[in-house]
């Protein structure tokens, strides 16, 4: 545990302030950690992922004895020291060859982990094509129905999103969109497809279903540069050119987020008043912006009671004096009844 530092000058104070939690967070910094035995394939893959992640990437290129699934203390230390919240740990063993572990942190603690094995890796250099500019935001493309249904793949999608694109921005220069990271799954095995989910659960009960890791399809990560061609309309036509790196991954071990931590991590800042007025957050009823950009409201008025409407006052329409005197002279007990009657009369009018 690091001791808390009290800044001694303005520069270190600013540096510490930059590390403090913010309401709207910037991009996450990733640390690429080389394990004790990484191997060529894993090292190259990490290098190229780092090239995509730059400038928010730090490389730990010396050998590090870390086992994220057994001991997370050094990851937590590094996260605090470098103000990083993502880790990619490359470690190749006999049991799990070509392994890469993605670790996400929350408040310098491990949030969740995901281990993948690299089946196939093609480097950027093998594609003799133009490359993207470092520091540009990539587009992301996910293709498979499992990305919305299967928890492991929902986690993978969330992971890759926060790895490449996890920063909320309010505007983007469209000419700067240069490359896309595409994540495609292999064909969904019948045990996981929604049509046969009933049989799958039945199989799970009887216990004759494959282990989950086996059943999950392969993950193909590809990156392409985008060419925007004139189509004659405002929207250009898109052509893709493979840029590399391309990775074929299998999912291995994983560790889900602690539910308490997840709740904390998903907390949103309270919206500012002007944002709420703009229509963010809660859905606004009866408000709309018309074509001219003016805010238009719709007001619902209760049904009008025309009987109560005050029209021209005339002597003839006035209730006679005697009647009112009668009411006044009545007993207290009766008064209530009269008053009730009066109210009823008004209602029926």
């Amino acid at each position: 545990m690091l001791r808390t530092i009290k800044p001694k000058n303005a520069r270190s104070k600013r540096a510490l302030q930059a590390r403090e939690p913010k309401e709207v967070e910037g991009p996450r910094t990733a640390i690429f950690v080389r394990g004790t035995h990484a191997g060529d394939k894993v090292q190259n893959a990490m290098k190229e992922l780092m090239a995509l992640k730059r400038p928010h990437a730090i490389s730990f290129s010396k050998k590090n004895a870390v086992r994220p699934f057994e001991d997370t203390s050094s990851l937590e230390f590094w996260a605090q020291k470098n103000d990083a919240s993502l880790f990619v740990v490359g470690q190749s063993t006999k049991k799990r060859p070509g392994g890469m572990t993605f670790v996400r942190m929350f408040d310098n603690r491990v949030f969740d982990m995901l281990e993948v094995g690299i089946e196939d890796f093609v480097s950027m250099q093998e594609f003799k094509t133009p490359k993207s500019t470092p520091g540009h935001k990539p587009l992301m493309h996910f293709a498979s129905e499992l990305f919305t249904t299967h928890p492991r793949l929902v986690q993978l999608k969330s992971f890759l999103l926060s790895f490449f694109n996890g920063e909320e921005i309010d505007g983007i220069h469209l000419a700067g969109l240069g490359h896309v990271v595409s994540v495609t799954l292999g064909p969904t095995p019948p045990s996981l497809s929604s049509t046969t989910s009933a049989t799958a659960t039945l199989g799970a009960i009887t216990g004759d279903v494959q282990p989950q890791g086996e059943a999950l399809p392969k993950v193909h990560i590809r990156s392409y540069t985008i060419r925007l061609l004139a189509s004659g309309t405002r929207v250009p036509r898109v052509e893709l050119t493979p840029m590399g790196p391309s990775l074929d991954l299998v999912l291995r071990r994983h560790q889900d987020a602690d539910p308490e931590l997840l709740k904390q991590a998903l907390r949103r800042p309270k919206l500012k008043k002007q944002d709420v007025e703009k229509g963010l957050g809660k859905k606004q009823k009866n408000l709309e912006v018309d074509e001219m950009g003016d805010l238009r409201g719709k007001i619902h008025v209760a049904k009008q009671n025309l009987g109560k409407l005050q029209t021209r006052k005339m002597k003839g329409l006035k209730s006679s004096k005697e009647e009112s005197v009668d009411v006044d002279e009545d007993d207290e007990d009766d008064e209530g009844v009269y008053a009730d009657a009066g109210r009823k009369r008004r209602r029926t009018e």
């Binding site: 498979s144 799954l185 064909p187 969904t188």
Partner: peptide
Amino acid sequence: GFLTVTDTNPIDEESY
């Protein structure tokens, strides 16, 4: 907001 598109169509096994 995240410049992301998700294609939930099933993968075409043959062309794959």
